[in-house]
Design a protein around this nucleic acid. Structure first.
Lengths: 208, 208
DNA sequence: GTTGCCATGTAAACTGTTACATGATTTC
DNA sequence: GAAATCATGTAACAGTTTACATGGCAAC
């Protein structure tokens, strides 16, 4: 979802045009925090809770090249005689400016509206298509998944230093934990309500 | 994010191949619930909490055409002498089968991992780039946005019938409300912690 | 009488997905 | 000696974004 982010873009001015996809902005943020190679970032997207972004090389490497072409990142090959050299990216002054502009924007309501997760979307659609029993089974699979995810998050949180001067990443992780806990509470309530509710009308009669 | 959803797709078999993008599956679900035109769906994506999906006509109309080409949807022009006729889509038997297959899949942990919302992503990046004061200001704008969103959600929930035999959409909405309430609690806690934390190291000295 | 809504659709440019290719190094 | 990991990248394809086009109708 590539939202226009900093300025309205006229017909693609040459020099200091600045609009970027979510992936590009995330790459700026990651590289600003720590100089990284494409492979570093790929692993990060695979392993951490930043799994919103695709870890496919066909997404990451071209995006890093674009950012370098625009002058927001710079790269140099690390001298290693043994294996294939790593291309390590660093953020530039103009890159920092673009990143800051993105971070300085206040939170808009529309950003929150994107929150509906797929499991919930499927849940809202399934009632007339599958009926009560399937809804209950689905919520149980949801609970299992949420519990496993909670374990993962807690393991990841344990890896973060607790007395660092840098606290935002830990706080963000705690937000994730609270969100999953809220989901688990909701699941229990929803199970109770579904047990009390009558069978819904069927999408096509005779089926199910 | 076009996940392969139902079957592994061999080299694009002719007949009953079934894999679809998130948008396409959502369209199946919406049309199954109620026969709709492209414009109906566009408005729904703009106005309701299904705002995960793009409301641009260049996304919706081609997707509906694809679904019709595959035989999962059928369409007919509504006879209106006055204005431009509406093309109304209905779901077919094979469409229902594809929808059911998607809905019957148990929830996977990876679906939950996609949860990190952009406001939180920005929050985790901003500490060294902008410093303490900016982090606190950001959280206040986050609180404002969350409160306004909560009002919107409650207004939307009020529009849903409360004694329907169909309960899933209302429950899903309540999940949304609980999630935002959890976010608001987190924001208060985070503000308290940031007030107690020392100034973080700067990204580039002298700046900020 | 002009702005805004209803309602459809298309075209160019871009981004992301999937799959492939390469080659050295470590682990079993 | 096979398999997995490190590490980069490209090519074909599919889907989305942005912007444009059309035209009647309602409201102010």
């Amino acid at each position: 979802m590539p939202e226009p982010t900093t300025e309205a873009n006229g017909p693609s001015e040459s020099g200091a045009d600045s609009s970027a996809t979510a992936l590009e902005l995330a790459l700026l943020g990651i590289v600003a925090f720590k100089a990284s190679s494409g492979y570093d970032i790929k692993k990060m997207f695979e392993e951490t809770s930043m799994g919103i972004f695709s870890s496919s090389p066909g997404a990451i490497y071209p995006a890093l090249s674009r950012l370098e072409r625009r002058g927001w990142l710079a790269s140099h090959l690390e001298a290693t005689e043994t294996a294939r050299p790593r291309r390590v990216f660093t953020i530039s002054g103009s890159g920092v400016a673009v990143l800051r502009a993105w971070l300085e924007e206040p939170v808009r309501v529309e950003e929150l509206r994107q929150a509906m997760p797929t499991p919930l979307l499927r849940f809202s659609f399934m009632e007339i298509a599958l009926g009560r029993a399937a809804g209950l089974a689905y919520l149980e699979s949801y609970r299992d998944a949420a519990e496993r995810y909670l374990d993962d998050l807690r393991a990841e949180a344990a890896g973060l230093g607790f007395n660092d001067p840098i606290v935002h990443p830990r706080l963000a992780m705690e937000h994730g934990v609270m969100g999953v806990e809220a989901t688990l509470h909701w699941i229990e309530r929803a199970i109770a309500e579904l047990n009390a509710a009558p069978e819904p009308p069927a999408l096509f009669e005779g089926q199910r």
